[in-house]
Structure formats: structure tokens, C-alpha cells
Amino acid sequence: MQVVCLGLSHKTAPVELREKFAIGDAHLGEVAVQIASVPEIGEAVVVSTCNRVEYYVASEDAAAALTVLTRRVGDPSVFQQMRGAESIRHLFRVVSGLESMVLGETEILGQVKKAYLTAQAAGTTARHLNKLFQRAFNVAKEVRTKTSITRGAVSVGSAAVDLAEKIFGKLDHCNVMILGAGETAEMTARSLQSRGAKAIFVSNRTYERAHSLAEQLGGRAIHFDEWEREFHSLDIVIGSTGAPHAVVSREKLVPLMQRRADRPLFCIDLAVPRDFEVSVNDLDGVYLYDIDALQGIADASMQVRRSELARCEEMIERHVAEFSEWLATPRTSMPMGAQPEEAK
């Protein structure tokens, strides 16, 4: 029995092609049934995410299985063909996040698990793919826990959120204000919201823009000349105005901080020119991070992840060898859909 994979990903195909071949969640089981019902193919799992479309099958005749699959997708030139150890290695790398657009991201593991469970529910998996996917999930767990491949924030937004959690712990009691209405500020605010930030205020020179963004975020718009009135209740301030000079000076912040009853203030400065005077970081309880500092954190985390690649690949290689050996061991095959003896 051999494992075969036919797939395309963000590495091999642009988004126009990926969206053409993408399969909706509702149809994954149905497609897997169609593939598994072909005599040359024993078992099938179909994975489809925004970055990849992949067909994993188990077959006695790998060449015939690949022919069936390429015929099915219609345009084989954009698909990568893998068989044997290569396809096993590929699956282990995918679930471990090594093939992801952002190295080490963990969302893919959940997506592959979901695809596998769909195939299992549709009855298109049996001994070989069950064993393969279970092993893949174990490999992903091992790689995540024994290396730093998922460690640290790798984007400006997630770096800001991680820092906020290092200051406040849980963010569910934190109020956030966006000064200006830049796109990165909006994304950062959304990330903070996804981690539980309580309330979002948006203040912009153009009130309509503030109102529109506040509506999208489920927050409250504030006139730009009134943002200081809300200051006492704020925990996180994101600066992203287009002002040519600092909007928040040390002189302005000192009296405002005195009204805060020893609550720390996290200032995220995403604006260029910067919205916060550098010296506000010297104030007790104020933590200022500008765009370069946040990007530096993201780059350092990515560097750590890259440096862990070799260790991850070593772990994966060991599992590939073990699984290939198991696959090569002759055993009586159980026909598709057959129930185990004890279940009859």
C-alpha cells in the first residue's frame, strides 16, 4: 500500500488558481467519497484551505491513483505529485506548520483535523489513512511542544497583543483607544478585541471616518478634540494619525497619568511621523512601543522559528521512516467499509 498526494499551495499557485480549485467545507466529504469509490483508490482525504488544496489517498497502485486524481482535477500542470515517503513527509510538514505562509502557524492543524474527520464520517478512511493522520497529529504535537516553531508573535499586530498580555494579563478589562484610523491600527484593535479587549474608542480628525471604523469594530467614536476626556479609563492607546508632530507629549501625559490610580498604560505607536513623544516611555507605568520596535519583535520571533526548522525536520524524518516501515510491512488488508470483527 502506498500513500499518494496531489496538491497545490500558495508556494506553487497564485490565489487565482487556488480559488479555482478550492472545495467548500460542505463538499469535502462528497468529493472524498467520489475519489475513494474509484477501484484504483482505497482511501481518501481531501484538504482545502485558503492556501492549499490537497488530495491524500492510499492505493496499491500509486501510478494509477495519481492518474485518476490528475484526471479529476483537470489541470494537472499546477498540481504537485507526491508518492510514498515524500507524501507522508509533506503531510507531516503541513500539519506542523512548516509549509504554511507564516512559518509555524497552528491554524492549519485544526483545518487538517476537520478535513480528516469529514472524510472519516464519510467512510473514506480505513487503516492506512487513519494511521497516517493520527500519526500526523502526534507529529504536529511533538514538534510544537519540543521546539519553538510556534513561539512568539510574527506580525506587528500579534506582537502588540502579546505585549499587552504581558502588561495586563487577561485583556477582558482593558479599554482601547485608536487615535487616527490607519489600517494597521484597525487590525491591531481587532487582534486585541479577539483576545477579549472590553471597549474600543476611535478618535480621528475626520469624525465620519472615526464613526465608520467604530461601527465596524463595535466601538464608540469620539471627536478628536475630546479624546483626553476618556483618557482616565484607557489601558491601551494606539496612535496612527497622519499628524506631522507628536499628538501625545510627555507634558500632556503627566497630568493625565495622575488621574489613573496606578493603572499601567500601553502606547502602541504605529504612526510615521510618530504620535507619541519618545520620552513618555520614561514615565512610571507607561510602556511605549513604536512600529520599528514591534516589527523588531516580529522579526526576532520569525528568526527563532527559522532556526528551529532543522530540529523540526529531524523529528519529522524519524516519523516518516517509522511510518514508511509500518506501511511496507505486509498485512492482510481490510476492505473499505468493512467493520472490525468485534463490531459485527
Partner: peptide, 10 residues
């Protein structure tokens, strides 16, 4: 060590 120390609020 920063990554492993608890939040300052805690």
C-alpha cells in the same frame, strides 16, 4: 526570560 515571566499586573 521575558517570555516566561508572568504579566506585571499579576
Amino acid at each position: 526570560v521575558f517570555q516566561n515571566l508572568p504579566p506585571i499586573a499579576t
